[in-house]
Amino acid sequence: RRDDVANEVVYLVVGVTEDGFREILGFYVGGQESALGWKTILNDLYNRGLEEVLLGVFDGLPGLEEAMKAVYPKSDVQRCVVHKVCNALNAVRKKDQSAVAEDLKPIYKANSQDEAKEKFRAFKGTWQKKYPKVVKSWEQDLEVLLTFLSYPSSIQPMIYTTNIIERTIKEIKKRTKTMNSLPTEKAAEKIVYLQSMDYNQRWAERKLRGFSNAYSTLQEMFKERYGSERE
């Protein structure tokens, strides 16, 4: 409550180490979601010691990927494929949704970027005439949609989508929605802080699937980009 009752944004950042352990790295209450807000947060994370990042996974907020590259120029950017597919299906007629979904699947299920681009060309040939805007949108974003294919196959299902953070946000919302409103920003911060600490304690004992197989490759990727041995 700030003079009146209204919803406010909580920015939340979840990181995954090369060992495969998740951690809520930071949360920030207040304001409206924007690329500028995210850049401020990314700068804060960098100044707190998060200096080496391989990959940032985002939805399609305009400017967010540019903010990531400004703070972490050596990082890759991955656009959430699940969001992109949903947006495409919302833009086509209901009778075509199943067919479009099936024709999109070979693109993000491909074994390499070259194969994925070939599958996209097939998708374009089928749907260009009927849904040119959908095809154009995928064509423009194809590079950032396929970043995950440059990473070890064992972790690709984890990194082509923002599902990890979506699930985390959903659980935190469950906690805050039981209250009609929170009296101050500090009260909101306390709720999110306690929930974050609970997650981090549980996650410290749960390694994500596939990261054991990918560990050596990820170590080499860090070394190649940042020139330092990982501990």
Rank of each mutant, 00 (worst) to 15 (best):
R1A: 12
D4T: 13
V5A: 08
A6G: 01
V9H: 06
V10T: 10
Y11M: 11
V13Y: 08
G15N: 06
D19K: 10
D19I: 13
F21I: 14
F21H: 12
R22P: 02
R22A: 06
E23S: 09
I24A: 02
I24E: 00
G26F: 04
Q32Y: 05
E33D: 09
S34V: 10
G37Q: 09
G37D: 00
W38F: 13
W38H: 07
K39D: 10
K39A: 13
I41L: 12
D44W: 10
L50Y: 13
L50T: 11
E51R: 15
E52Y: 11
L54Y: 04
L54P: 10
L55R: 05
V57K: 05
F58I: 10
L61Y: 04
P62M: 14
G63Y: 08
G63I: 11
A67S: 12
M68D: 10
K69V: 05
K69R: 05
A70Y: 00
V71I: 14
P73A: 14
S75G: 03
V77R: 03
V82G: 06
V82K: 07
H83T: 02
H83E: 01
K84Y: 05
K84M: 04
N87T: 03
A91Y: 02
A91H: 11
V92T: 05
K94T: 12
K94V: 14
S98L: 11
V100D: 00
A101P: 00
A101D: 00
I107G: 07
K109H: 09
A110P: 01
N111Y: 08
N111P: 02
N111H: 12
E115N: 13
A116Y: 04
A116Q: 03
A116P: 09
F123E: 01
F123G: 06
G125C: 09
Q128S: 15
Q128F: 15
K129N: 13
K136P: 00
S137F: 11
W138T: 12
W138P: 12
D141M: 14
V144L: 15
V144T: 12
L146S: 07
T147V: 06
F148I: 06
L149A: 13
P152L: 02
P152A: 02
S153W: 00
I155P: 00
Q156D: 01
I159E: 00
I159D: 01
T161G: 05
N163R: 08
I165R: 07
K174G: 13
K177G: 04
M179R: 15
M179H: 12
S181D: 03
T184R: 11
T184D: 01
E185M: 15
E185Y: 02
K186E: 14
K186Y: 02
A188L: 14
A188R: 15
E189A: 14
E189F: 04
K190H: 07
K190V: 01
L194W: 07
L194V: 15
Q195F: 12
S196Y: 07
Y199A: 09
R206F: 00
L208T: 06
L208A: 07
R209F: 01
N213L: 08
N213M: 09
N213W: 09
A214Y: 01
Y215P: 10
Q219D: 05
F222S: 03
E224Q: 13
E224N: 13
Y226E: 11
E229W: 09
R230V: 07
E231D: 00
E231A: 10
